[in-house]
Amino acid sequence: MNIFRLSGDLCHLVAIIILFLKIWKSKSCAGISGKSQVLFAVVFTTRYLDLFTSFISIYNTVMKVVYLASAYATVSLIYLRFRSTFDSESDSFRVEFLLVPVAGLSFLENYAFTPLELFMITKTGEAASITTHYLFFLGLYRALYLGNWLWRYHVEEFFDQIAVVSGVVQTIFYCDFFYLYFTRVIRGSGKMSLP
């Protein structure tokens, strides 16, 4: 464990909590991509199946269970409890378009982590500030993992190509979002809209 990985995981946790509370408190999932949350649930389920096969640490097990439970809880908030507020018109991302590059680059098994909210922002041109904070922490989690891999490469002299390549791909998707976040959300009025 190093500081990058710990803060990355905590940012991931903060992102999940922000999204859950936003939906819960506002009783609305407007502006949230239900499809991406389903993909998160699928990704966590497939990635964390090793919960049943190998024990790594209490920390690892607890975090995996928390991520899994919160992913399914968020999906149920969107599709069951607050279904009427779900903006399915804007959630028009074609999952099959994601599956094609994923199949082609199947060694990048983390590819489905790419959040479709980023696509929804480009589609609707705006995002509520709370949603951008969620995306910011999600992006920070991926970015901090880059620091973690540099750390592990130097300290442990090991390197996991699949994790690093897929992690870099995921982080690249956040770059333009980070730019907009800092130039508009932090300095501006709070709402993020594209020019």
Binding site: R5, D9, H12, D50, S54, I56, S57, N60, M63, K64, Y67, Y145, N148, R152, E156, E157, F158, F159, D160, Q161, I162, A163
Partner: peptide
């Protein structure tokens, strides 16, 4: 450089 799997990561 040795290859490893970071199974402990989240």
């Amino acid at each position: 450089l040795q290859s490893a799997t970071y199974k402990d990561e989240l």
